[in-house]
């Protein structure tokens, strides 16, 4: 969801979206959703002769799955902020993994003490 939030912060800015079929679209970002589908306003196509059907549209909705690159205005991107957010995510993931591991361990110990029930119960050699 980090990049969803990031793109939401870019709403109203001019971006260039490059699609997987090599078409580049310059437009104002109007909205974005969780799949990174995007709506652009006042679109201009670079290399318009190659895509004549784009001559009759102004506002478009692009499916996120066909986007290759998004060129962003450099001054609008706070790399530090993005990095911090990623670090926070990483720390959180680490912490939750630790909790899960310790829970699994305590459950295993309980199973061992209960004895008898499971096929895998350890029976001490007599």
């Amino acid at each position: 969801m980090l990049f969803y939030s990031f793109f939401k912060s870019l709403i109203g800015k001019e971006i260039v979206v490059e699609l997987k079929n090599d078409m580049s679209l310059l437009g104002t970002l109007d909205s974005v959703d969780q799949y990174l589908n995007m709506k652009l306003l006042n679109v201009e196509v670079t290399d318009a002769e190659k895509f004549p059907h784009m001559l009759a549209v102004r506002n478009i909705f692009i499916r996120g799955s066909v986007i290759r690159y998004v060129h962003l205005p450099a001054d609008e991107v706070d790399v530090e902020l993005l990095q911090d957010a990623s670090r926070r995510d990483a720390a959180q993931a680490k912490a939750s993994a630790k909790v899960q591991a310790s829970q699994a361990k305590s459950q295993q110990q309980k199973g061992g003490h209960g004895g008898g029930g499971g096929e895998r119960a350890v029976v001490p050699a007599s």
């Binding site: 549209v57 102004r58 478009i60 909705f61 066909v66």
Partner: peptide
């Protein structure tokens, strides 16, 4: 199968 959906603009056409 969709790439792009555009609002049809007759004037622009």
């Amino acid at each position: 199968n969709l790439v792009l959906v555009g609002e049809w603009d007759g004037e622009k056409e």
